[in-house]
Computed example of a mutant assay.
Amino acid sequence: MSSENFLAEKQFYNHLDFKDFFAHVTPQTVQQTLSKEHLTRKDFLVLLSPAAQDCLEEMAQRSRYETIKNFGYTMQLFTPMYIADYCDNLCVYCGFNHKNTINRRCLNMDEIKIEAANIAQTGLRNILILTGESQKYSPVDYILEAVQVLHDYFDSIAIEVYSFSQADYNRAVQAGVDSMTMFQECYNKKVYQSLHPGGPKANYEFRLDAPERACRAGMRNVNIGALLGLNEWREEAFFTGIHADYLQHKYKEVEIAVSTPRICPCSADYKPLSLVNDHDLVQYITALRIFLPRAGLTLSTREKPQMRDNLIKIGITKISGGVTVAVGGHTKGDDGGQFKISDERSIPQMAKMLYAQGYQPVYKDWQTLI
């Protein structure tokens, strides 16, 4: 199936009755699916079914095999760097919500240099920079000026910011940004609109198309994901997977990756619509790996250390360390932030854990040429 953009392709699945589909899936159906070399989108949905919970061990074994086959015993390390947290959005689940009373900051270029130097001392040569969504306090020009500063410290620069226009993604690539992360947060449009009642992020279609605009601009790596817990997780998992599948097939020169975050406490007074337990997360990650054997899978510090250590063995290819979710947190300390993290280990501690499991931590795998 092909279409002009993912939104057009998604229409085909919008009327899918997930409960009815899952009602016809048995453990035998799952076993038959696992015996296939290549999976269809229907097969992916089978692996997300409640019936597949009885086959998690077999799924984990297949997932581990596919990961080692395509990525070996390597694990890319990274850390996020928050440079601004002013935000115009009213996302009901986020600590950066415009109406939340928090001490907001926007680093100047000298502060960004200090923060970058601190992070670079860990040996990392790639960085992910983040901002809130505020065209006033963190406009595109500010973000790209920060990118220029960061080139003195890092070989690969990724952004996790608001949705850019096509022209601005083109500018970002020209400035040396080689990767981007864009969480759709929730693929169900009706639920999405209730979660994002105001601000630029309320534009569902513009955000959904952002990864594709980044691909067209020439990004080397594009990372997508849904925030599990905002809606029924199996539905969100399915649309995340087929979105990644769509991008992989249409933009073969781009490395497509998926992040798998679960919602966790923040300063917003929000109760998740769907609880996603550990078994659910394992099912999601293993199903993704089997369906998309060559896609990168990223795991954040929202998960506890033991959970992260175990998931490394069955599908994850990129993991964070030394994390702070506060602006300037690498030098000024973590006095709050977007959400609460569960794994506070440093980059050296993460590397030690990886070596103990027989993995090679990767501090650099790309050199941006500008």
Rank of each mutant, 00 (worst) to 15 (best):
2 S>F: 10
2 S>D: 13
7 L>D: 03
7 L>G: 00
9 E>T: 03
10 K>T: 00
13 Y>A: 04
13 Y>K: 01
22 F>M: 07
25 V>H: 06
26 T>I: 07
26 T>V: 07
30 V>N: 04
33 T>I: 14
34 L>T: 15
36 K>Y: 08
43 D>F: 10
51 A>S: 14
54 D>I: 02
61 Q>N: 03
66 E>H: 06
66 E>T: 05
67 T>H: 01
74 T>L: 03
78 F>N: 11
80 P>F: 09
86 Y>P: 03
90 L>W: 01
91 C>H: 05
93 Y>R: 09
93 Y>M: 14
96 F>K: 02
100 N>H: 11
104 R>G: 00
108 N>T: 05
112 I>Q: 03
116 A>C: 06
117 A>S: 12
118 N>L: 04
124 L>T: 08
137 Y>A: 08
138 S>A: 15
139 P>G: 06
141 D>K: 07
148 Q>R: 15
152 D>G: 06
154 F>Q: 09
162 Y>T: 03
164 F>W: 04
170 N>H: 08
172 A>K: 02
175 A>Y: 00
178 D>I: 12
186 C>I: 05
187 Y>P: 01
189 K>H: 01
193 Q>E: 15
197 P>R: 02
200 P>L: 13
204 Y>V: 03
206 F>M: 10
213 R>M: 10
214 A>F: 07
218 G>D: 01
228 L>I: 10
239 F>A: 09
242 I>T: 10
244 A>H: 06
244 A>Q: 07
245 D>M: 03
246 Y>W: 13
246 Y>P: 04
248 Q>I: 09
251 Y>W: 11
251 Y>P: 12
257 A>H: 07
260 T>S: 12
265 P>G: 07
269 D>I: 06
270 Y>V: 09
270 Y>K: 07
271 K>D: 13
274 S>M: 13
275 L>C: 11
277 N>W: 02
281 L>R: 07
287 A>K: 02
289 R>V: 11
289 R>D: 12
291 F>R: 05
292 L>A: 11
296 G>L: 08
307 M>G: 05
309 D>F: 06
310 N>L: 09
313 K>W: 01
315 G>H: 07
317 T>N: 00
318 K>D: 10
319 I>S: 01
325 V>I: 14
326 A>L: 01
330 H>N: 14
337 G>E: 10
337 G>M: 10
337 G>F: 11
338 Q>H: 14
341 I>M: 15
355 Y>C: 06
355 Y>E: 15
355 Y>V: 10
358 G>D: 12
361 P>M: 14
367 Q>G: 02
368 T>F: 11
